[in-house]
């Protein structure tokens, strides 16, 4: 190992430690038998038990799940359409509309939607406004993934289908959709994760009323830190980890399929 590689490795290990030690500490303290996040006292599952008896938290988890499922469904539908449209047609406006909400600081979308819901729609803020808000920023992520998949594909397949007399709908259903399916699923998983984790936009569009998971966590952190926060955090990490593993498996299968096609 040369001197420069050794130097690089030590810098990289420091960076990885910086990334992982904080999360490891959260997980560790979720099993700690003490009210304080200070020193290790002993192993316990008490905080998970407390969590299971926390009605507000369970309700928040249920609400967040409903929001994430609805938002990821609509974002996947609209995002797939947007990805297809941007790839196939030379559009000027749509790409700007799709990608700007992703690139802006989240607070701007949150604020403008808050004003819009209250002034124009006269909507009482709640689950519906949150679902709409989440859909708005998730569309861009789905569109990026779907478009990337389409860009890697051979256009002649679609032309062939058309020449053989397939209607646009038939071409889509029989050719395009099966081919982009892995990207669609990856986009859906991504939207789900983004939605269930989102704090900033939820914070502005939540209203008062139903408890939502990120807001609940925020209140716990701001008002009274108990190790229950650690337990929720650990469970959420586990959930995202599972989602990532599923997405990774899909991606691997995707790559294999692409490789197989190229091999032929």
């Amino acid at each position: 190992m040369s001197r420069s590689t050794r130097w690089l490795w030590s810098a990289a290990i420091l960076a990885y430690a910086f990334l992982y030690i904080p999360l490891a500490i959260v997980v560790m303290y979720s099993f700690n038998d003490s009210r304080l996040n200070a020193e290790w006292v002993g192993f316990t599952l008490f905080w998970y038990e407390a969590l299971l008896n926390n009605k507000e938290m369970l309700l928040a988890a249920r609400n967040s799940l409903i929001i994430a499922l609805s938002a990821s469904f609509s974002a996947t539908l609209l995002g797939t359409m947007a990805g297809l449209a941007i790839h196939r047609y030379k559009l000027k406006v749509l790409p700007v509309l799709v990608f700007t909400p992703v690139a802006m600081p989240e607070i701007l979308l949150g604020v403008s939607l808050l004003l819009f819901f209250l002034q124009v729609l006269n909507l009482t803020l709640g689950m519906i406004s949150i679902i709409i808000a989440h859909t708005t920023f998730c569309i861009g992520f789905v569109a990026v993934i779907v478009r990337a998949r389409l860009q890697g594909m051979d256009e002649s397949i679609f032309e062939a289908a058309r020449d053989l007399g397939a209607s646009p709908w038939q071409t889509f259903r029989l050719i395009t959709l099966p081919l982009i399916m892995p990207a669609v699923v990856a986009g859906a998983l991504m939207s789900f994760t983004l939605s269930i984790d989102d704090f900033v936009i939820t914070f502005f569009t939540k209203g008062v009323g139903e408890p939502i998971l990120p807001i609940q966590i925020y209140t716990m952190i701001k008002v009274a830190v108990t190790p229950e926060v650690n337990a929720v955090s650990t469970l959420l990490m586990l959930l995202t980890l599972i989602m990532i593993i599923i997405a990774g498996k899909l991606e691997a299968r995707n790559m294999e399929a692409a490789g197989g096609e190229a091999g032929k």
Binding site: L77, L78, G79, M81, A82, L84, A85, R88, Y89, L91, V93, L94, L97, V98, T100, P101, L109, V111, S112, L113, L115, F116, Q119, V120, I132, A133, T135, T136, I139, A143, S167, P168, W169, F172
Partner: peptide, 29 residues
């Protein structure tokens, strides 16, 4: 004509959604 219809159906919904929930709110702001 069908191709044009297809373009309309594919690009239309996201365009409308984002106009209503992104462009209009920005203007309102």
């Amino acid at each position: 004509a069908r191709q044009r219809m297809a373009k309309f159906f594919v690009a239309g919904p996201p365009l409308v959604f984002l106009t209503v929930f992104f462009v209009v709110p920005s203007l309102i702001m």
